[in-house]
Write a protein that binds this DNA or RNA. Sequence first.
DNA 1: GTAGGGTTACTT
DNA 2: AAGTAACCCTAC
Length: 288
Amino acid sequence: MGAPKQKWTSEEEDALRRGVVKHGAGKWRTIQKDPEFSPVLSSRSNIDLKDKWRNLSFSASGLGSRDKLRNSKITGPSSSPSSASSHALILPVANKVTEALPEAEKKPQDVKTPPKYGAMILEALSELNEPNGSEIGAIFGYIEQRHEVQPTFRRLLSSKLRRLADSKKIERVDNKFYRLADSFATRTPAPIKASAPKQKDPSKLSKASKNLGFFATSSPALDAAMAAAVKVAEAETRAHEAHDQMMEAERILKMAEETESLLTIAAEIYDRCSRGEITTLNPVQREF
DNA sequence: GTAGGGTTACTT
DNA sequence: AAGTAACCCTAC
């Protein structure tokens, strides 16, 4: 009603950015109360800061799809404030390597993941075929194992499901489970599809034709590797009988892929270091 | 207070 | 229809 939407201004965004540099990500309240940022962020709550930071992080996390207008200043080797020297998850700043790949074939031409999220959801629902409906987590897990998904997919999935339910493609049960509308299945295991996109085409994955075009932002490979690890764990817990073999194969393929990506990144880092560049990438702190 | 999942509104 | 950004809710 009275609050249509309060878009973040550049000043606010900048204040948040610097606030994170000063106090660190996670100290939202501190940042919000800091007299330096307080005037700018007065109308924002600590939660707002957190959410905004999350959005920034996601955007800069490599799947920018297209770098719109994110960057401006940053990666300034100058600031280097205070050596905070601690956590440092400063990431929502994409630095691009403005070098010049002699001739990079920048026409990867997606090999996988047709942007048909709706189809993937329907497929998952159809395959899971839960009488009482599947919970969003299960749906996500299923799709994640079958397709290459972005970190944002988890978030998109909610919208997607709601949208599909809204258009009567699927039905929502107990506000927590989703199932196909009776128009589609309930009985026939695979009326529409759920059989075609089974294979992921291991044939052509050798060259990292996906996003290594030019060492994008943080480190997609590391994220991917981490995601893969989590995925494996989940998969093992889940233990869908029929899919075990396939997942095994897929895991190996993925690992190979990740390894290659890491090598590429390592090479890039080495190159930059040898040219005296300051290479900062402190992407994550993870634990297995 | 913070992190994370989920939802709604707006944009492309 | 797909994607993004701001907001809300809840568990820790």
